[in-house]
Design a protein around this nucleic acid. Structure first.
Lengths: 179, 179
DNA sequence: TAGACATATGTCAAAAATGACATATATATT
DNA sequence: AATATATATGTCATTTTTGACATATGTCTA
C-alpha cells in the first residue's frame, strides 16, 4: 500500500505534524489520494517504528501538544526507490456519481437534471478552492514542482468534470425532446 | 458499499453472468469503478441470498457452465432508491502516478520525463480502446444513455490526463532549462 | 451559555478489498 | 508438447479502509 509513500513524500518537503498532513490530504490531495485521519495517525506511528521518520514532541500553550515528523535517511532511500520503480499501477477510482450515471436509463429527465445540477455546484466549489489555493501560494518559496503539477491536475480534473456534466445535461435535454 | 448498486445497475439493463459483469468492470468501468472478480462473485452470491437478483444455471458444451443473473422487483426498488438519494459522496481516488508527481522535487528531469512518457503511452492505449468501443457500439440498440455518458467520460478523462502529462512535460523542460 | 468549529492525536470493531490459490474446458501459439 | 489466453466460478487469509468513539483546549457565534 502507498499511503506510506504519500506521507514520506510530504514529509520530505518539510517536517510536518499528523494534523498538517491530514489537512493536506483533505484539502489538496482529494483529486488523487484519499485518506482519513485515523489511517494517517496509525501509519505515522508504524513508519516511526520502521525508522523511516522520526518525531519531536512539541509542547504548546493555548492549543494541544503536537508531534513533528521528520524524514530519516532510511526513509528517503525507501521513498526514492519507490518513486523510480516502473510498476505504476493504474488509478483506482470509486466515483458514486458516475456509477449513478451508468444507470441513467432508470431515471427521468427531471431526476437526472436535478442530480447533475447538484454535482456541478459541488465541483465548482472544489474548483474555486483549488484555484484560490493555487493563486495564493504560487509565489511562495515552498510552492515546488509537485505542488504546481498536482494543483494543475486538480484544476484540469474539475474543469473536465464540469464540462462532462454540461455535455450530459445537453444530451439528456436533446433525448427528452426527441420523445 | 456500492458494488451491489454497480452490479444491480448493469443487471437491470439485461440478464448477465458474473464473467460478463467482470469484463465490463475491467474494460469499460475502470474510469470510475474498480473491482476484482473475487469481489464480484462473492457479492453476486450475497445479492442472490438477499433476493435482489435471481439466477439460472446454464449448461454449456465446449466452455464452462455459467450462471445468468436477473434483477428482481425487490432489487429494482432497492437500486432506484439509491439512485435518487441525495447523499452522493465525492469520488475516492488512488492514483499512484499523481502521488509520484507530488514528490517530483526528489527526481531529475530525465527521470521525470521517463516516467511521464510511459504514462502517456499507457493512457493513449486506454483512450484508443474506449474510442474503439464507443465507435463499434454506438449504433447498437443496447447502447443506452448510461453507456453513452460513461464512455464519453472515459474519453474526456483520458484526454485530460494526457494533456496534463504533456503540460507537465513542458513545465519540467522549462524549469530544467532555467538551471 | 450553549453549541459549533478548529487544532491535535489517538483506538478499535467492522466492512471492504486484494491477491493468491483452486479448478475445468477449449483454442491458439511457440 | 508445452505454454498462454479466454471462458467461467469460486474460496480464503491477509491487508486496507471506514466511521464511530474518545479526549482536550481555545475561539467564535447564536
Amino acid at each position: 500500500m502507498s499511503l506510506k509513500y504519500a506521507l514520506l513524500g510530504l514529509i520530505s518537503k518539510k517536517p510536518q505534524t499528523g494534523y498538517e498532513l491530514y489537512t493536506t490530504f483533505k484539502e489538496r490531495m482529494i483529486y488523487f489520494w484519499s485518506s482519513t485521519h485515523s489511517q494517517i495517525y496509525t501509519e505515522l506511528n508504524k513508519m516511526e517504528h520502521e525508522e523511516w521518520i522520526s518525531s519531536t514532541y512539541i509542547y504548546q500553550e493555548g492549543s494541544p501538544n503536537k508531534k513533528l515528523y521528520t524524514i530519516t535517511t532510511k526513509g528517503e532511500e525507501y521513498l526514492l526507490n519507490w518513486l523510480l520503480s516502473d510498476k505504476i499501477k493504474p488509478a483506482k477510482i470509486k466515483d458514486e456519481f458516475l456509477l449513478r450515471a451508468s444507470a441513467f436509463h432508470l431515471l427521468s429527465e427531471k431526476e437526472i437534471i436535478h442530480l447533475l445540477d447538484a454535482i456541478i455546484e459541488r465541483e465548482q466549489r472544489v474548483l474555486e478552492a483549488t484555484r484560490k489555493w493555487q493563486h495564493d501560494n504560487e509565489q511562495d518559496e515552498e510552492f515546488g514542482i509537485g505542488d504546481f503539477v498536482t494543483a494543475e491536475y486538480g484544476v484540469m480534473y474539475a474543469e473536465m468534470y464540469i464540462k462532462w456534466c454540461e455535455k450530459v445535461r445537453k444530451e439528456i435535454r436533446k433525448r427528452s425532446r426527441g420523445n
